[in-house]
Design a protein around this nucleic acid. Structure first.
Length: 365
DNA sequence: AAATCGGGGCC
DNA sequence: GGCCCAGATTT
């Protein structure tokens, strides 16, 4: 593939911009590979603003790789709860244990060893060693793809194989060999603060003079993406079991797959769309079959949730149950007051809240 | 090459 | 309402 014609001083211009306007972020200005690693994992498919409150809290619970490795998966997931993409947390935990076993607790500094760790791909491995050790590696994330697609007015979809090959090639060509770490952070800052998805600040861009999209006034057309397929809509009924001791009954989801290792109420998928029939009556039938003694009471406010690739509507049913534990694996009663110590997806916290809210309503009324 | 994997910020 | 985000992994 031929190299595009680009000015030779782009990296230098970008670094000058970064030196003056670079963001001051908690994981910058230090060389602790553990902290840089953690920030990179949290920031995968997640914005800086969302990550910020999680970052310091996670570090206060797990100050070192050794302490992270020694923690239980339950504890790690509890600190991750609400951030999404929970597989990231499970792989981070696995990788910490791998670092302890294979590298004596010291994060590796050779890129093939770094990329061999779970959850660390080409871009994250490059980012960690470029930022932490100023090694000359190249990153390619969503910000960089947008910046480069506009710079080149790239017609290939950035999420296609040929599009990515082209972007990697150009990204490598542009990377500063003198200051690869600052360059990596600088180009991410450029995408996050100037070359934004909507209304980019082209007039202040250090690459404005070289940008094909700016020259043609066509920034809105890039990056191009492949056509995406519509999301299916699924429905589910969930039974929120409460006992007289202010406890709630939850089961643990399988460790692999969607929301792996997180706790949720019992329930059943609904094949009808939208659901038909009396959900309270149906809940009663199912709970009896499970050997649960209790009275399904009320239908709470449904919870609508958008996942990456499908939409889910959950209909919560409040059930006041006897304390006798149903015979189920990976299931238990947990005090309502201590639910924040348990990993529970945002979706299921809302389901619980809506059902518990009915109890408080009936008590007050 | 395509599918899987969350949640919040922002327009 | 859709789009996006410091992507990696699995099939």
């Amino acid at each position: 593939m031929t190299l595009p014609h680009l000015p030779a001083d782009l990296a230098q211009r970008l670094l000058a911009y970064y030196d003056e306007y670079g963001r001051d972020l908690p994981w910058r200005q230090q060389q602790d590979l553990y902290r840089i690693w953690l920030s990179e994992i949290m920031l995968q498919q997640t914005g800086v603003k969302t990550v910020m409150p999680y970052y310091e809290k996670f570090l206060s619970h797990f100050p070192s790789i050794t302490q992270l490795a020694a923690a239980s998966q339950e504890q790690v997931l509890a600190q991750w709860q609400g951030l999404g993409y929970y597989r990231r947390a499970r792989m981070l935990h696995q990788a910490a244990q791998q670092v302890v076993q294979q590298h004596g607790g010291l994060f590796p500094e050779e890129i093939t060893q770094v990329q061999a760790l779970p959850g660390i791909g080409p871009s994250t491995a490059a980012a960690i060693l470029a930022i932490g050790r100023n090694q000359a590696h190249t990153i390619l994330d969503g910000n960089v793809m947008r910046v480069l697609a506009r710079l080149l007015t790239l017609e290939l979809p950035v999420d296609s194989t040929p599009g990515k090959q082209r972007l990697w090639q150009v990204a490598r060509q542009l990377t500063s060999q003198q200051r690869p770490g600052d360059y990596a952070q600088a180009i991410m800052d450029l995408g996050a603060t100037l070359c934004t998805r909507s209304q980019p600040a082209c007039s202040r861009c250090p690459w404005g003079g070289a940008c094909a999209a700016r020259q043609h006034g066509s920034w809105a057309e890039y990056p191009k993406k492949r056509e995406k397929k519509p999301k299916p809509h699924h429905y589910q009924c969930m039974w929120v079991l409460l006992d007289t001791q202010q406890r709630i009954f939850l089961r643990k989801r399988p460790l692999e797959g969607l929301l792996g290792g997180l706790w949720e109420p019992l329930g059943e998928p609904l094949l009808e769309t939208p659901p038909l029939g009396n959900l309270v009556q149906r809940a009663s039938h199912h709970l009896t079959a499970l050997g649960i003694q209790g009275q399904p009471l009320l239908e709470a406010q449904p919870v609508d949730h958008i996942f990456t690739h499908f939409r889910l509507t959950v209909y919560p049913i409040l059930v006041v149950a006897a304390s006798g534990a149903p015979i189920l694996n990976d299931a238990n009663w947990w005090p309502l007051a201590q639910l924040d110590q348990r990993p529970i997806a945002t979706l299921h916290r809302k389901v619980n809240e809506n059902a518990v809210g009915l109890v408080e309503l009936s008590l007050n009324g």
